[in-house]
Design a protein around this nucleic acid. Structure first.
Lengths: 169, 169
DNA sequence: CAGAGGTCGTTGAAATCTGAACAACAGGAG
DNA sequence: CTCCTGTTGTTCAGATTTCAACGACCTCTG
C-alpha cells in the first residue's frame, strides 16, 4: 500500500475523529436513556431488539451473537441475565441437539414497547434530526461500504436503499 | 417533541444502523491491529495518543479523561497499567497538590512510533479510502454537529475545516 | 456402525470497567 | 486563621467482558 506512511490530512482527521467521538458520545447517551427507561443495559437492549426483529421473535445463540456482533460467551452471559429478568427464555431445538433458541417473552416485548419511544427520540434528537436527508443518504452509502469491507455477512442484513416508512426499529 | 412516536424511515434506519455497525466493526479491527503491533489495548493506545498530542506530552488526569472520553476511575486503571509497562509516568504538580500529571515516557513515544503506521494504514484501508473527499467533508460536518450537541466541550477540540497535511495522528 | 472433524453453547479464571464512597487539597467567605 | 464548598484522583466491590478450553452434538466418510 503506497499510502501506508502518509499522515492523515486535516480533512481526513476531521472526519475520522468526528466519527469516532460521535460514536462514543451517542453510545454513552443511549446507555443512559435505556437504563433510565427500562433499567437494562444497552447491550441487553440490543439483544432484545434483534430478537424482536427475528422470525417468531427467536434466534439461535450463534446467529444472535453474529447479528448483535458480540462474542458467544458474552451473549451467553447476557442471555442469562435477560432470562433471570424474565425477558427471554431458552428453548432447546428439536432438530439440532446442540442448538439453543433464545426466545423473546411477552415481558420482553412489553419492555421493548416501553423503552423504544424514548430510544427513538434520543436517536432522532442526537443524530437523525441533525442531518439533512441528503447527508443521511451519503452517510448510509459510505457506511455500507465500510461494513461490507469488514463484514460481508453483516452487510447483507442492512436495509436496502428505498424509503418507505420502515416497520422496524 | 412531535416526532417522538414516528418510527424511523428506511432511509433513516439505513444511516443509523450503518453508522453503528461500522463503528463496532472498526473498533474491533483497530483493537486487533493495535494489539498485534504494540501488544496494548485500543483504550491504552488512545491514552498514549492524547498524551502525545498534548503540550509537553503530559496532561492532568481529569483533562486526559475528558479528552479520551472515559471515566476517571477507568483512566486511573489504564494509567496504572501503562505505568507498569513503563510507557507513562505519574508526576505530582507543584502548584496544585491535588493534581497528577500523566507524562509520556520515551518508551511510550517509541511504542507509538511503532504502532502508528499500521494504525494509520488500518484507518485508511477500512475507512478513509472507502470515502470520497466530498463524503469525508459531509461526514465531518455532520459529525461535528452531533459532537457539538452531546459535548460542546469536546467539540472545541476537533480540528477546523481547512485541509493542510495535518501533523498529528 | 465407528471415527474424524467441525459446530454449538457453556464454563472458569483473569482482565477490565462502572459507580459510589473516600481522603487530600484548593479557593473563597467570614 | 477557620469553616465551608467544590475539585481531584484513588479505592473498593460488584458487574461485565475476554479468552482459552471443554463436553455435547452433528455430518460426512468409509
Amino acid at each position: 500500500m503506497s499510502s501506508s506512511s502518509r499522515p492523515l490530512t486535516t480533512r481526513e482527521l476531521r472526519a475520522w475523529l468526528g466519527f469516532v467521538r460521535a460514536g462514543h458520545l451517542l453510545d454513552h447517551e443511549l446507555e443512559r436513556q435505556i437504563k433510565r427507561d427500562g433499567d437494562i443495559s444497552h447491550a441487553e437492549y440490543e439483544v432484545l431488539v434483534h430478537l424482536d426483529w427475528a422470525q417468531d421473535h427467536r434466534l439461535r445463540m450463534a446467529e444472535l451473537a453474529s447479528r448483535v456482533a458480540i462474542s458467544k460467551s458474552r451473549l451467553t452471559y447476557q442471555v442469562t441475565q435477560l432470562e433471570r429478568a424474565g425477558l427471554v427464555v431458552r428453548t432447546s431445538c428439536p432438530t439440532d441437539g446442540r442448538a439453543v433458541w433464545a426466545q423473546l417473552t411477552d415481558a420482553g416485548a412489553a419492555l421493548l414497547a416501553r423503552v423504544r419511544p424514548g430510544h427513538r427520540e434520543a436517536v432522532r434528537e442526537n443524530f437523525i434530526d441533525l442531518l439533512t436527508p441528503e447527508e443521511l443518504d451519503v452517510l448510509a452509502d459510505a457506511m455500507s461500504r465500510v461494513v461490507a469491507r469488514l463484514s460481508p455477512t453483516l452487510a447483507g442484513l442492512l436495509p436496502a436503499a428505498d424509503d418507505k416508512p420502515g416497520g422496524r426499529e
